[in-house]
């Protein structure tokens, strides 16, 4: 137990001391919500207050970024630097390593989400339904886990950290615009909207918005979204396990 606690504390410190986590995970989403609030603070989007709608979009964007850009490179880089090999030479059970990693990343993701929401609510008066909070929390955890797994899949399958980074970004940037996060699906041409309905970020944001915004109408059934996220997670897990390596090539 002590082993798990110290490992988790160390992981937490490593994350908080990492400049790119600090920038992409904290400064960037907060900056984004401030910018969006300044532009669309009073408008409406998707039939609800724009800032509330965007707030949840930024939360999901951040979950996606933390998976596709953060997680996709952390294990890959620890592997290529030989840090994973060093851990592999100890009697640390792999499940404890993975458990502690996922725990820390989920925790950090939740803290970031809470910060984004706090800023949006305090500065621009975004709102969310308190009764949906528990469900929203559960969905955020689910989303974080799915994107952590997808990040691992990219990091494990890519031959190097550089390529993991590139692949992560190639997935992330289009999804940023195609996943109903800031740009409503209605703004996309019909065929593209049909495709983007099936991205994991669209599914997550749809679930989260309907949970947290009372008057929000879902774009597709909750079970479809949940099943879709589950399938993405499962697929990612298969790829991540298949290509996992302890050592650099």
């Amino acid at each position: 137990m002590r082993r798990f606690l110290v490992l988790t504390r160390s992981m937490f410190l490593m994350n908080l001391r990492d400049r790119s986590t600090l920038f992409w995970g904290f400064a960037f989403p907060i900056g984004l919500i401030l910018l969006y609030g300044a532009i669309w603070g009073g408008a409406t989007m998707g039939g609800v207050s724009a800032i509330t709608w965007l707030m949840i979009g930024v939360v999901v964007l951040n979950i996606m970024a933390s998976g596709m850009i953060g997680d996709s490179t952390w294990f890959a880089s620890a592997r290529d630097k030989g840090q994973l090999q060093r851990l592999h030479a100890t009697p640390l059970p792999p499940l404890q390593l993975i458990g502690s990693y996922v725990l820390v990343r989920v925790l950090i993701g939740l803290i970031q989400a809470a910060l984004i929401c706090t800023v949006a609510m305090l500065v621009y008066g975004a709102t969310m339904s308190l009764s949906g909070l528990a469900l929203g929390f559960g969905l955020a955890v689910l989303g974080l886990v799915v994107f952590i797994i997808l990040g691992q899949a990219v990091g494990a399958a890519a031959p190097s950290v550089r390529s993991a980074m590139a692949v992560g970004q190639v997935i992330y940037f289009p999804l940023m615009f195609l996943s109903n996060l800031f740009l409503p699906l209605e703004a996309l041409p019909g065929w593209l909207a049909n495709v983007s309905q099936w991205t994991p970020a669209t599914m997550l944001v749809d679930l989260l918005r309907t949970a947290l915004i009372p008057q929000m109408v879902a774009t597709q059934a909750a079970w479809v979204n949940l099943l879709g996220l589950g399938l993405y997670g499962l697929l990612g897990l298969l790829v991540a396990v298949r290509f996992f390596r302890w050592s650099p090539r």
Partner: peptide, 19 residues
């Protein structure tokens, strides 16, 4: 290959805990 974000004593504590 040691974790670059941890300092020497933190690394010792981590590895001791692992064992």
């Amino acid at each position: 290959a040691l974790f670059e974000e941890l300092n020497a004593s933190e690394l010792v504590e981590l590895f001791a805990a692992i064992y």
